[in-house]
Amino acid sequence: MTTHVLRRLGGMLLTLAVSSALIFGAMYAAPGDPVSFLVGDPENVTPERIAAVRAEYHLDQPLLVQYWLWLSGAVTGDLGTSFQYNAAVSDLILTRLPTTVSLVAYAAVLFTVLGIALGTLSAVRRGRRTDAAVTAGTTLAASVPSFVLAIALISLFGVRLGWFPVTGLGEGFLGRVHHLTLPAIALATGALAIVSRVTRQTMVEQFDLEHVAAARASGIAERHVVRRHVLRNSLGPVVTMCGLVTASMLSGTVVIESAFGLSGIGALLVDAINNLDFPVVQAVLLCMVVAYMGVTTLIDLVHPLLDPTVRIERNRV
């Protein structure tokens, strides 16, 4: 077990090292020299600014030292300075973090609850009309790009019916929920198909197992059989998938925040790219990759707790 944890963490660190090097080194791939690339907007090139960039990135040092200083700064919370906002990048990120986190959390609740519910319905009614309808409906919904869905939701529920506000964040918890409902739906819809699919698939496999037949043979009501034998045994893969999808939503927020005009981290990234503010781009990407890798690794380590048989296999290895 410990070897597995250590190996998994080691793998994660290695991948993080390579991807952070990629994020850092990308500026050397830019056309022209890195200084003018980092300064960004050509209209703002001043000697002071060039000096600031040189100092910020330690450009007079060897490449590896530059990377090391940048990375150790990032680890200690110093993510550099935004030239556009003239502010510490870590502050920019921190002020926008709550929006993004609440959006992702809201969407995660939506697709987990609805996805497992629809998947269970599909599995219980497998091979029947309801099953086909759920499969067709969720896959159809997943074929619509999230930004198109966002536009459609704004048009219908925001503008036409006026049920939901289309800008801003709202006051208080309820206000926030009200404001984030449409964005969360747009973000969650694509994931709904994946989660309901995985739920259905693992449950259908469970239905054919002997312990389910044995439970039925002992006269236990079907709803108990479904809950205690089929659904419970499917939780491992389903929870894993929900976690992975939640992690990958970090990138989905980029699109959704832009579509709904929410000022979260994703919108910050898009702004930074359009304004040639590369320190912000680096910092946001690094944060997203770290968060993503962290969550996926965590899921992998938590999985055995849900499934005792996995735990024992790992122990044997």
Partner: peptide
């Protein structure tokens, strides 16, 4: 082995 639910 297959009659007992492995996770319970």
């Amino acid at each position: 082995r297959s009659v007992l639910n492995p996770v319970r």
